[in-house]
Design a protein around this nucleic acid. Structure first.
Lengths: 182, 182
DNA sequence: TGATGCATGTAATCCGTTACATGATTCA
DNA sequence: TGAATCATGTAACGGATTACATGCATCA
């Protein structure tokens, strides 16, 4: 799957501008398993629109570039449905943290502690974002989705398991709610 | 971190050819959090050697290209240590599965079931690989490492949590040891 | 006999990120 | 006053994958 399907998917829930799509990805449920930058979103939107899978409407703004609000077309919905029914590719997970920990015998205790703290803080951050999405902050179209609870549950489970494991290995981590990173 | 550090890291444990490095990544503990293809490994090795971070030795083979066995140099060790002590980048996790599940209202029950089955099978595969690494199959240099137990434990914990979650949502999965994928 | 494993490498290509360019408004 | 937010877009660059090219040995 690519950014194209991602944009189509988000726009199937609510119309939005490129800027808003990025924000949704950064702050919403998506965050921990998807990322995308302006450099990929804007061109994708332009292309999708050219192909007739999206329609655009320009909203004038004061002292800002026009806001281009995109909406999915019927044709877009068809293409999206087709894209989603393909068996999803295997999850991709890359972790420098685990690589470093595997070679921990080459590091000082300080370095290891720092890496553990950073990893723990990252996990807590993701966890917090998921919890926030039930409350305010997130768009209703997203959180009211039948799939939203499942996805949030999956993320919560996995992240919590990882955090627990780290805390078990290094109990001091439990107290550090704030970032030990940098 | 990049493939360069990865190669340096593996070669700090045992000398190996490009082919063997690939195999180690595919079949070893690394598998679930790192991947690399020949197209990136071979050029990296050539470059690292040119920079004096590795040394090479050619082993003649019958009816095959010479096997080039690389070993890390003292300079390479220094560079590796420096590379590892940098605070690791945040884990990257991408999941088409979760995206599809978020939009499950657009899919048939068959498609959802297939996606769940595939995800579960993938998790079990990764889990099995981790368990195998304690037994035969894997190089001792890897599994005897002080960090190996930690990394295996982390992977086991996270993957098991994910699999449990799926089984809880869809109990039929427990019986399917074999692949329901495709 | 045909797939799989051993073994190395290159070139084309893809997909995406980073940095750059622009600029007003609002909040601290 | 300076940072952050809103807002869109392009160009350069990076990093890796895929496919291609080659070819013997072994196993089923």
């Amino acid at each position: 799957m690519n950014i194209r399907t991602l944009c189509l998917g988000i726009l199937s829930l609510q119309e939005a501008s490129g800027y808003e799509i990025k924000k949704e990805i950064e702050e919403g449920v998506f965050n921990h398993f998807i990322d995308a930058s302006y450099g990929s979103i804007y061109p994708a939107l332009t292309q999708l629109n050219a192909e007739g899978l999206l329609s655009v409407r320009s909203e004038e703004q004061l002292g800002r570039p026009d806001k281009k609000v995109y909406a999915i077309t019927e044709e877009g919905k068809t293409v999206l449905a087709k894209g989603l029914s393909v068996v999803p590719a295997r999850d991709k997970y890359k972790s420098e943290f685990l690589f470093v920990m595997l070679l921990q015998h080459l590091l000082s205790k300080q370095d290891i502690g720092r890496a553990m703290g950073k990893q723990h803080a990252d996990l807590m951050e993701d966890l917090a974002r998921i919890e926030n999405c039930n409350g305010e902050n997130c768009s209703d179209e997203m959180s009211n989705l039948p799939g939203a609870a499942f996805v949030a549950g999956y993320g919560r489970t996995v992240l919590r398991a990882a955090a627990d494991y780290l805390e078990q290995c290094q109990p001091e981590l439990k107290k550090q709610t704030f970032k030990a990173a940098e």
